[in-house]
């Protein structure tokens, strides 16, 4: 029997989608820049990014998604070879 009640509307359920909270890149004060010369592709920055704002390129380099990166600097802090610098916007 079909119910008239939409069960995913009576309770706060949300399905994952890219950037559902908007383009949070505008919040950034410091911008992380990856130096590919120094990067060893360990991907610790990709793992630690709390916003999933780092993607992995075809050559396995990390790439910052500046549309969503809030500039927290965790990636720069975690990078074992100091390949990420935080530059004021």
């Amino acid at each position: 029997m079909e119910s008239k009640i939409k069960f995913d509307l009576i309770t706060p359920i949300s399905y994952p989608g890219e950037g559902s909270a908007g383009a949070t890149g505008s919040w950034r004060v410091f911008k992380p820049i990856i130096d590919r010369e120094k990067c060893r592709k360990c991907l610790l920055c990709w793992l630690y990014c709390p916003e999933a704002a780092i993607r992995v390129s075809e050559e396995n380099y990390p790439e910052i998604i500046y549309e969503y990166c809030k500039g927290c600097g965790i990636c720069a802090n975690e990078c074992p070879v100091k390949a990420i610098s935080m530059v004021e916007e």
Binding site: F7, P12, I13, Y15
Partner: peptide, 15 residues
């Protein structure tokens, strides 16, 4: 009801 965890269609509850 109202819903059950579905690994094929993940969701966040109470965000």
């Amino acid at each position: 009801l109202p819903y059950v965890i579905d690994f094929e269609r993940p969701f966040t509850h109470g965000s």
